[in-house]
Design a protein around this nucleic acid. Structure first.
Lengths: 234, 234
DNA sequence: GTGAAAATTTGTGTCGACAAAAAAAATACA
DNA sequence: TGTATTTTTTTTGTCGACACAAATTTTCAC
């Protein structure tokens, strides 16, 4: 059992309860600290976080809306499973969102957007330099989230963030198996994307995002394939 | 004040409370029975629906997740406003989802999907025949929702449904100003789309969906422009 | 000993109540 | 009369408790 987060009671402001529970659960789910399929006991959680069941239930409703947990009526809610059979739908949507957000960022970005994007890229490059796989996953997400913010389309942005989170969960499964070749390629690809966005070259930004997405999808596919072979070998 | 839905107490099964509140509120919001910006009083709602505040709050959390209401901390939650200034982002996302769902439906549909799609199209045609604008809005949504279901990509589907709902709210604003020329064109376009899907002609389905989306966006734009002129004329 | 029925346990769905925060009203003061 | 401050009211956020449903265990019949 992993080291679970326990908080002292009555140190939180009124109104922040749901948000707090939401953040804790979301992080634990995306980090796989809570494995897919794990039932979430409301009473237990209430005790752990030193609060009543009401804010916890509301946080669970929110997580259910984002597909991170599944609520079984009159039964416990469980951490959402990873649907390996339909991963292609995930990859398809992820690739499209990579493309449209990067396209629109090239079209709609404003001056300070690039500052933020470059800051995220620097953090990603640092994580790659230090070969810190978990930090790579996190900073890569933030880099593309920054681009999505610059694209200025909340509909694409919300779907993309959801997909990036789901991807974080997926990558977390295989984070130990990063080799150190591909990530460096990502750093270069990121730089190219920034340049295309800054130049407002929509088509180039689109093409680069498409290639980048293909790269990432391919890597995840390889990880899964490798993993499956191991499973069969057992 | 519109005729509000009141239900007798204690006739509902355990566990259906949140769903019930969610459905009532969602319908009232999308039908503009609750105007954008209207504050939602939890106690009042609780009395109207004869239940406690707990399931009502959970329904509101869900609606907030879908962007249909906005929660102001420690203040009342209000029905989400229609953001006229950023409608282009809505049109952009709507058009793309029209395209990808129709594309994927041509690729992935199975036999009984077409049965459902044709049934929805018949309902739409009937609404057009009867010049029932509200029914047209509703059946058009269901027609495209059926195509999205046949596309078999839950990520696109959920975003598309959200956009179709937002569109329903938008069209509801102008439902009186339908002329009877355009809707008939939509019936024909729908037929063409069905044919392309059945023939698994992805590119044609895509092109038709694109044209169709442009038509609809154009019509909504005209309605808004007309409406604005009226407002200025006052 | 095995299977069915009954009883118990466990955990969710809902409720009414209270406390904190914000808004509205009332009061004091210049 | 207008403005600042206090008081009251309204409404949300949270809590503990109870009722009901499902799962589990126990009991009992055969």
């Amino acid at each position: 059992m992993p080291e679970t987060a326990t908080r002292k009671p009555a140190e939180r402001k009124r109104g922040s309860g749901v948000q707090f529970v939401y953040n804790v659960l979301r992080d634990e789910i995306l980090d796989l600290a809570l494995a897919p399929g794990t039932p979430i006991d409301e009473i237990q959680l209430a005790q752990r976080l030193s609060m009543s069941r009401t804010p916890i239930r509301e946080a669970l409703v929110r997580l259910a809306g984002e597909g991170l947990v599944t609520t079984l009526p009159n039964r416990s809610t469980v951490v959402a499973n990873i649907d390996f059979l339909n991963l292609h739908t995930f990859f398809d949507a992820l690739t499209l969102m990579y493309r449209v957000t990067t396209r629109l960022a090239a079209l709609n970005h404003q001056a300070d957007d690039l500052v933020t994007i470059r800051a995220r890229q620097a953090e990603f490059a640092k994580a790659v330099e230090e070969q810190d796989a978990l930090a790579m996953i996190a900073t890569n997400r933030e880099f593309h989230a920054a681009i999505a913010a610059a694209a200025r389309n909340p509909y694409y942005e919300s779907l993309f963030l959801r997909l990036l989170d789901e991807g974080r969960r997926l990558l977390r499964l295989y984070y130990s198996s990063f080799n150190d070749q591909l990530p460096k390629r990502y750093v270069v690809e990121h730089e190219d994307m920034i340049a295309a966005i800054e130049a407002r070259d929509v088509e180039k930004a689109d093409a680069l995002a498409n290639e980048h997405a293909d790269q990432i999808v391919e890597q995840i596919r390889n990880m899964i394939a490798r993993d499956h072979r191991q499973k069969i070998a057992l």
